[in-house]
Computed example of a mutant assay.
Amino acid sequence: MNNIKSKWIYLFVLSIIWGSSFILIKKSLLGLTPYQLGALRIIITGFFLLLIGFKTIKTIRKPDWKWIIITGVLGSLIPAFFFAIAETEIDSAVVSILNSLVPLNTILLGFAVFKITSTKRQMLGVIVGFIGTAILILKGADLNPNQNYLYAIFVILSTLMYAANVNIIKKHLQHVKPLTIAAGNFAVIIIPAIIILLFTDFFSAKTFEKPEFKMAMVYITILSFFGTAMAKILFNKLVHMSTPVFASSVTFVMPIVALMWGYLDGEAFSLIQGVASIIILLGVYLSHKKHPKRS
């Protein structure tokens, strides 16, 4: 009974943390460029993870480092920049809904690239999810003509990278502890993040003199600690105490939290976009619904 309660508590907390990440990115962009935000998110998160997981890195075997590097780049480095770039043109709530395509793309890539078989119901979920995505983007462009919905491609590409990351970890790094993978990832990607930050004029007086700079640093620190470092640990624990199917259901609640933040921040959201969001979540549900047991 305690284990069941713990699973739901972890799920709820993760939904709040990840659902709030998108508004934190939006607020951070008021005082930082997308490249500064992406680099700082990696650097600050890396600091936290290496602080608690540095000793575990020495347990990584040489053959595993190739996959550690690939999952670090696909699962954290590039998406950190892509999400920041996307939110310069698209509302945070819409970005959060597009992010819910991750489990659908995991199934799609698992079938197409990693030869992991999928059921008809899962494939139906993929189709339904992409229909919802198309409606969301097209209607969003009509509702918000000042926003460039072509930037949705950055989010969609990120969900494909997240999906590849999950499949690679499952196939090649199943024997490595979650904290070790995360620490190894950030030990590698923190180096290019520092280099990128050095080329963004972050350390110039012009950046520090911005009135929004101080609050942007507060937002990015909160995002890095809670939305990336702490969330990775909590999610790994949730997977450990339950199942990947249950853990991935966090994607159902995340958009609801993000929509609430977006509404409170004055973001426009139409009824049709709401319907499209439900269609996307229906696709996610279908892709994760188990077959009924036959007697």
Rank of each mutant, 00 (worst) to 15 (best):
W8T: 08
L11K: 08
S15V: 07
S15W: 05
W18A: 06
G19T: 08
S21Q: 06
L24A: 14
K26W: 03
S28K: 04
G31Y: 04
P34E: 06
Y35M: 14
I44D: 01
T45M: 00
T45K: 00
F47E: 01
F47S: 12
L50Q: 09
I52S: 07
K55Q: 15
T56Q: 12
K66P: 05
V73W: 05
P79E: 09
F83W: 11
T88S: 13
E89M: 10
V95W: 01
L104R: 03
V113R: 05
S118Y: 00
V126W: 01
I131Y: 01
G132S: 01
L138E: 02
L138A: 15
A141D: 09
L143M: 12
N146Q: 14
S158Q: 02
L160K: 01
K171T: 14
G184C: 09
N185P: 03
P192E: 09
A193K: 01
I195N: 08
F199S: 12
D201C: 07
S204A: 10
E209R: 12
K210Y: 05
K214V: 11
M215V: 10
T221E: 01
I222C: 02
S224L: 03
S224A: 15
F225I: 12
A229M: 09
K237T: 10
L238F: 08
L238C: 07
S242L: 09
P244N: 10
F246D: 08
P255K: 02
L259G: 07
Y263K: 14
F269R: 04
L271Q: 12
L271R: 12
L282P: 00
H288L: 15
